[in-house]
């Protein structure tokens, strides 16, 4: 069994492939990224072994993600390469990967061979990433999984003037106190995300025809996707696999590839 674990800033995602059945995805799980990453991974592996009645020695583990830095005991892969590897398998002929992570964003340009030709990472400021929306949802007392539900009901999205996730959190409380609609605030917050992504995407540059794929937890949001499509005047492809797991999947594929090369 091959397990790819994406140790993110907010969530740890794990996906398992069974080599004996054509590398089919046989298991997926998510845990909160709270505390020591090494401890979280050990628990994750123990849970998988126990729940699926597998021996730990039969598990081949690959690690990626923002919080994977000190986990040298495992096979490590970069998030960039993991994302590219995943998209190369799931959606060949993709030119642009827009990864909306928990704390950071990545825009990756991929060439005809599926190799990374250019990229831009925003890892200086958390605005435009998952935590921005996560904090706003907490203030509004809604679950982040409900953002589409509310945003699509909005007839008048409000602009969130704060770029900083922490100030946005307070601004939203102020807007609520002023009697603004929940839907309008959520729609505005989603627009803040796409608004932050746009200059990064334009900077990496679009050619005349592009297949663009959204990955990361917020890649699931139809509202954010539609908003980006409107601004880019281009279709965006939602991945065949839950966008939250794309990076972990790519990590597993990379490990698989390395193992096979090792065998050769």
């Amino acid at each position: 069994m091959i397990i790819g674990i994406d140790v993110g800033s907010i969530l740890v995602k794990a996906i398992m492939l069974d080599e004996s059945i054509n590398n089919t995805i046989v298991y997926k799980t998510v845990a909160k990224s709270a505390g020591d990453p090494e401890y979280i991974i050990k628990n994750l592996i123990n849970d998988i072994a126990q729940n699926l009645k597998l021996k730990k020695r039969d598990l081949n583990i690959g690690i990626t993600g923002r919080n994977s830095e000190n986990l040298d005991v495992y096979h490590k892969f970069s998030e960039m390469n993991s994302l590219a590897a995943a998209i190369n398998t799931l959606h060949r002929n993709t030119q642009i990967i827009v990864d909306i992570g928990g704390f950071t964003n990545k825009i990756i340009k991929v060439d005809d061979n599926g190799r990374i030709s250019d990229y831009l990472v925003n890892n200086i400021c958390s605005s435009g990433s998952g935590v921005f929306l996560s904090l706003i949802c907490k203030s509004l007392d809604i679950n982040i999984s409900q953002i589409d539900e509310y945003a699509f009901q909005s007839k008048n999205p409000l602009q969130i003037s704060s770029q900083c996730s922490i100030f946005a959190e307070t601004e939203v409380i102020y807007l609520m106190n002023e009697g603004k609609n929940l839907e309008d605030i959520v729609a505005g917050a989603c627009r803040s995300i796409s608004g932050r992504l746009m200059p990064l995407i334009l900077k990496v540059g679009l050619d005349s025809i592009n297949q663009i794929v959204l990955t990361g937890g917020l890649g699931k949001s139809e509202f954010i996707k539609k908003d980006l499509e409107n601004q880019l005047k281009s279709q965006i492809t939602t991945p065949k696999l839950d966008p939250l797991f794309v990076c972990a999947y790519g990590c597993a594929l990379s490990l698989l590839n390395d193992s096979q090369e090792g065998l050769n």
């Binding site: 505390g35 020591d36 704390f103 200086i124 400021c125 958390s126 935590v131």
Partner: peptide, 17 residues
Amino acid sequence: SECSIYAQSEVLNYISR
């Protein structure tokens, strides 16, 4: 990290250690 959000995460990590 300068960003308060990132720094918060670093601090939590130090606390857990």
